[in-house]
Design a protein around this nucleic acid. Structure first.
Lengths: 209, 209
DNA sequence: CTTGTTATGTTAACAACGCTAAGATAACAC
DNA sequence: GTGTTATCTTAGCGTTGTTAACATAACAAG
C-alpha cells in the first residue's frame, strides 16, 4: 500500500526517521534544555522504540552532531541577513557581532550543543570555515571591506579569529545575572552588546575612528 | 582506638571525606576528562560506597560546584601572580589575559566544569565579583591604573566585562585545530594569545598607543 | 561506664540511561 | 514469488543518580 510516492517522498517504514529524530531532538532541546536530551527521550518524542535511532546514527554523539549542524546552518543564515542589512562595512561588523550574540541568546540550548560537540572534536565544523561563503569568510571579507589591508593575510586572519572569539565570549557570558544592571544602564540587551563590542576590537584598532 | 588526634585531624570514620571527594574528583577530572566524572567513580576513587557522598553533598551538582570553587580559587591566584609580575599597568592587562587563557588551556576539564556550573546557575560565582580583591576587581583596577577614567563608572564596568568576555572567548576557542597554523605563524601559543589580544580591546581603544 | 543522639558510613534497590543482540517486518531487486 | 536488505521492535546488559533502611562510631550527658 504505497501512498503518494512523489508528494511527500515517504520511502520507508516511518518515512524519514532521521529527519524526524533531528526535529524531535531540536524540539526537546528548546522545550526542556540540554540535560533532557537523551536518546530514549528523542525516540519517545518521535514515537519509535529506543533502539530505532541506532539505524540512523552510530551513537548519541552523532545525533547531537546532526542537531549541531542544523544550528550552524541557522547561525550562518542569521549572519548573512545581518551582513546584507548593513549600510556600511563598518556597521556590518557590528551587525554581525550583535546577530551572533542574539542567536546564542535566542537558542541557548542549541548554541551549547553546537560548541559542546565542537569542543569534543577540538574543531569548529568545516562548514564554518571552508567554502567561499562560510561564516568565517563572511567576517573576514567584511573586515577587508571595512578597510583592513588585504595583503597582510596573517593580520586579517588574526582579526577574524579575534572577532569570532569576542563574539563567542560575550555570547556565553551574556546570560549571567551579574550583567543585568549593565543591560539596564545601556538601555536594553542589544545596546549592551553594542557597547561591549565597542570595547572589543571587533573592528581592528587602527581602523576605528 | 584513636590515633594521632592532633597530627592529621582525622575526626571521623574516614577522616575528612568531603575534602577527599573533591580531591578524587579533581584527580579523575584531570586524568579522564569531564565525561568520566560520575559520582560513583568519585566514590570509587575515594574508596567509599556510592552513597557515601550524599552525606557531604546534596547531589552531584553540589560536588561539581565544590570542584569549580577550587578552580576559581586557582584561577584567581594565577591572575594575582600575573598582575604582580607585570612592570606596568598596560602590560599587566596583557599578562592577565594571557594568564587567564593559559590557565584554561592547562586545566581544560576543570575550566569546563567551572563554566558549566556557572551557566547552570546563570551567574559567575560570587567570589569572582564580590570583595575588594576578587578577580573582577583585579581586572577593573588594572584598567584604571592603565589610564581609564575612574569617574566614568559605566565605561569602566563595560571595559572590564569586555576584557573578561574576550579572554573567555579565546580560552574556549584556543583548543581548536583550525588555529594551529596561526599559532605556528605567531611563533607559539602564548604569542598567538598576545596577538589575538592586541586585536581585542583588552585595553580600551582610547587608551591604546 | 552506660546510654542516647547524631554524624557518618554501608547495602540494596529503583528508574533511567547508552548501547547491543536477536528477531520481526516491509520495501525493493530480480 | 523469492531473496536481499533496510528498517524497526523487544529484551537485555552494564552504568548512572538517587533514595531508603540499616549499621557503626564519635560525642554528650547522666
Amino acid at each position: 500500500m504505497r501512498e503518494s510516492q512523489a508528494a511527500e517522498a515517504r520511502p520507508y517504514h516511518h518515512g524519514d526517521l532521521r529527519r524526524a529524530l533531528i526535529d524531535a531532538a531540536s524540539r526537546l532541546l528548546e522545550a526542556e534544555g540540554p540535560s533532557a536530551l537523551s536518546l530514549r527521550a528523542v525516540a519517545r518524542e518521535a514515537g519509535v522504540s529506543p533502539a530505532a535511532p541506532y539505524h540512523h546514527f552510530k551513537d548519541k554523539g552523532e545525533l547531537l552532531e546532526a542537531v549541531a549542524h542544523e544550528g550552524w546552518t541557522l547561525l550562518d543564515q542569521a549572519l548573512a541577513r545581518a551582513k546584507a542589512e548593513a549600510p556600511s562595512p563598518r556597521e556590518a561588523m557590528n551587525n554581525l557581532g550583535v546577530a551572533y550574540v542574539c542567536f546564542a541568546r535566542e537558542n541557548p540550548a542549541l548554541y551549547r550543543v553546537m560548541y559542546d560537540t565542537a569542543r569534543d572534536k577540538e574543531a569548529l565544523p568545516d562548514e564554518m570555515q571552508q567554502g567561499e561563503d562560510s561564516a568565517y569568510c563572511k567576517v573576514r571579507d567584511t573586515l577587508v571591506e571595512a578597510g583592513a589591508d588585504p595583503d597582510d593575510a596573517l593580520d586579517i586572519e588574526l582579526a577574524t579569529v579575534a572577532a569570532w572569539c569576542s563574539a563567542h565570549g560575550l555570547a556565553e557570558m551574556a546570560g549571567f545575572k551579574q550583567f543585568d544592571h549593565l543591560k539596564d544602564a545601556c538601555g536594553g540587551e542589544r545596546a549592551f552588546f553594542k557597547a561591549i563590542f565597542q570595547h572589543m576590537g571587533l573592528v581592528p584598532k587602527h581602523l576605528a575612528d
